[in-house]
Structure formats: C-alpha cells, structure tokens
Simulated assay, not measured.
Amino acid sequence: MTARRRPGGQWCPGRRRAITVWQQAGAPDQTAFGMTVTEEEQIVWLGSPDGPHWRLLA
C-alpha cells in the first residue's frame, strides 16, 4: 500500500486510521476490499460491509 500526502504534507482525513486498520488486519491484498455506492455516499470496506469502513470524500 502506498500512502501519499496532500500538498503541504498533510494526510487526507481518515488515512492514518485506514492504514492502521489495514496493517492490523495483516496487510491483506486489495481483493479483501469492497465498495458500496449509493446516490448519497461511497463507502470502502475491508472484509465485509459490516467490517471496518471509510466514507469517501466527494
């Protein structure tokens, strides 16, 4: 996994938490992630929709 910072050196909101959860899960392959998309939001999840998840910024 490659994490990049925003210009000015700031992390995107939630990025640090996402990296920590990914590492604690044993750094799973990208196939362990899924995505749920509705008209209102986009959510990336690890393992299952009920597992760790992150709302994407629009």
Rank of each mutant, 00 (worst) to 15 (best):
P28T: 04
A18Q: 06
G26V: 08
Q30L: 10
W22L: 12
Q30E: 15
G8T: 01
P28D: 00
D50R: 08
P49T: 03
G14L: 00
A25E: 05
E39S: 15
W11H: 06
L56Q: 04
G14C: 01
A32E: 02
G26S: 12
T36H: 10
L57P: 08
G14D: 03
S48T: 03
T36L: 11
W11D: 12
I19G: 09
Q30K: 10
V21T: 03
A3R: 14
A32I: 07
G34I: 01
W22I: 15
P13Q: 10
A18W: 02
R55H: 12
T38I: 00
A18C: 06
V21K: 06
Q23E: 12
D29F: 06
A58H: 14
R55I: 08
Q23T: 07
H53S: 11
P7D: 06
A25M: 03
I43T: 07
M1Q: 10
P13A: 13
M35T: 14
R5H: 09
T2Q: 12
S48H: 02
A27Y: 05
Q10Y: 03
R5N: 14
S48G: 07
S48W: 01
T20P: 05
S48M: 04
V37P: 04
T36K: 12
A25P: 00
T2V: 09
A32K: 07
M1Y: 09
G8D: 06
G51W: 00
G51Y: 00
L56W: 00
A27T: 01
P28V: 02
R6L: 13
P49D: 04
R16L: 12
G8L: 05
A32C: 13
G47I: 11
G9P: 02
F33A: 05
L46C: 14
Q23S: 14
E40I: 05
G9A: 03
E39L: 14
L56I: 00
